[in-house]
Design a protein around this nucleic acid. Sequence first.
DNA 1: TACACTATTTATAAAGATTACTATGTAAGA
DNA 2: TCTTACATAGTAATCTTTATAAATAGTGTA
Lengths: 147, 147
Amino acid sequence: MGSEMLDHAVQSLREHGVRMTPQRQAILEYLVTEHSHPTADDIYKALSGRFPNMSVATVYNNLRVFKEIGLVQEMNYGDASSRFDFVTSRHYHIICDTCGKVVDFNYPVLDEIEAVASQLTGFKVDRHRLEVYGTCPTCQAEQTHTH
Amino acid sequence: MGSEMLDHAVQSLREHGVRMTPQRQAILEYLVTEHSHPTADDIYKALSGRFPNMSVATVYNNLRVFKEIGLVQEMNYGDASSRFDFVTSRHYHIICDTCGKVVDFNYPVLDEIEAVASQLTGFKVDRHRLEVYGTCPTCQAEQTHTH
DNA sequence: TACACTATTTATAAAGATTACTATGTAAGA
DNA sequence: TCTTACATAGTAATCTTTATAAATAGTGTA
């Protein structure tokens, strides 16, 4: 369940000498609980009820810390602001061009392309990133209605 | 050669009712000629000699037009500003985490993953985007020297 | 528990990229 | 040439993200 991932994340943070604060805990919880690939502003707004005085900078600071430890992945889908995703298992994303919805889908990791890229370019490969773009079922339906 | 691609691009623009202006032509030429994945500012600076009065907005406007027609692809590699790539053949990019260099490499198009993603999510798939990250040969050498 | 040290938060300013807006200019067809 | 709609220049505004400094609060230790 979610709290297990959360505990593991907190432990990972402690091992890196990162202090636990209520704000940090809340941001982490939000990322683990929500699977909505939120922007920094999404998180800020979602937690502003519990932390009325929280600064946007705190959200960014923590997201950076999480990223450095590898708990969180930053993504940029061409729209203005970055989106952040709690790293669980290996999955890829498919993004709706019309409404911007992001959906996970599982697919065997593309190890081969990393090997090929390394051979062709001489790079030492660390990771890759793959995103698929299209139209989600909801937007397809709407486009059909209004033909 | 390059002028062939350029002609084709110009024709494609005309078919879409887009007028050819000297600035537009120059931006297009720059994108076709340079294979450096420039930012909007790169283009602006490169052309400021020929067009001392050109506005940054003109660069952005044209890049948007080119994108809408499908001549150009916008990419965001996590750093501040977007990079723009003239669409030629199917290739992918490998990016150096250390110096930010972008290198093309060819690889068979990943059609299968689009099909799988479509099946699993119900999306109508349009395209995908894949990037590999690592360390380029130059930066590897430097890291070895300073060990 | 109290203390000390330092990371963290807050608040705000600043930077940087991109977009919006309006008057002026210009491409392209009649 | 004339006309019209589109494009450009110039600038302001917006938006995201980072930097800064003072206040606050975790965490280990006595």
